[in-house]
Every structure is written in structure tokens, then in C-alpha cells.
């Protein structure tokens, strides 16, 4: 079954520029139904308020980090099934392991390109 490109994608990053980059790359890949949040806390409010089909989140953010946001999502029975991709400059092995232990579905290290984003999204949500 092919992926519905109209799925609702939440992009979380404290850098507005980075959110714009990811949103534009998603648009290039055919995903136009995108919403955004500037930190984990705002993102958590968003996923509790509306149906989100995929989360793409930074790690290092004020108020609530990406890893804490991920843990909150995985703790919540209503949200725990949402695919979660971490996109971060944190490129250490212990970060990747911590993210996997917290329940991340895939991990992209910055800087990245559209091909990497597509490849990781395909692994998480299927071919598109």
C-alpha cells in the first residue's frame, strides 16, 4: 500500500530556518500537509490537540528537548504509535543509542540532504 502523501507531518526545531528547510524539502517530496512547533513542549501540545501521522524533531531545544518529547509521546497510550524521526546535530554513538532506547524510529544527523530524508522516511512510513 502506498503512503498517503496527505499525511499530517509535525516538524519540531527551535531554529525557524531549520523548520523552513525541512518543510521545503518535505514539500519537494510531495508532503504539503505540514505543521510546525519550536520546541518539545509546544510539539507535545500539538500532538495532543490534533492527529499527527509523522513527527520529525530536533534533539537540542529549549523548554523540552527532542528526547524528552519522544519519551512523552511514547508514554502516552494515544500517541505512542506515531512514527518519530530525530533530525539532529548530535552525532555521538551514545545519543543514537539513547534515542533508540527512548523509542525513535530513525535518526538523521545534520547536515543532511533530501535523499537522506526520503530514505529515512521510506524506512519509517513505507515507499512513496
Amino acid at each position: 500500500m502506498s503512503v498517503d502523501k496527505n499525511m499530517r507531518v509535525l516538524v519540531v526545531d527551535d531554529f525557524q530556518t531549520m523548520r523552513r528547510i525541512i518543510i521545503n524539502l518535505l514539500r519537494q517530496l510531495g508532503f504539503n500537509n505540514v505543521t510546525e512547533a519550536q520546541d518539545g513542549r509546544a510539539a507535545l501540545e500539538r500532538v495532543r490537540a490534533e492527529k499527527i501521522d509523522l513527527i520529525i524533531s530536533d534533539w537540542n531545544m529549549p523548554n523540552m528537548t527532542g528526547i524528552d518529547f519522544l519519551k512523552e509521546v511514547r508514554k502516552d497510550a494515544a500517541l505512542k504509535g506515531i512514527p518519530f524521526i530525530m533530525v539532529t546535530a548530535e552525532g555521538k554513538k551514545e545519543n543514537v543509542i539513547a534515542a533508540v532506547q527512548a523509542g525513535v524510529n530513525n535518526y538523521i544527523v545534520k547536515p543532511f540532504n533530501a535523499a537522506t530524508l526520503k530514505e529515512k522516511m521510506t524506512k519509517v512510513i513505507g515507499e512513496f
Binding site: 530556518t17 531549520m18 528547510i21 524539502l25 519537494q28 546535530a89 545534520k110 547536515p111 543532511f112
Partner: peptide, 14 residues
Amino acid sequence: YMTGIYEACNFQDV
């Protein structure tokens, strides 16, 4: 090419 520009803009965050 526009995709290439978006990709290159990654530098700012890093």
C-alpha cells in the same frame, strides 16, 4: 536545483 539550495542552507543551523 532549488532542493540543492535548501540542502545547502543546513549549514546555518550546524
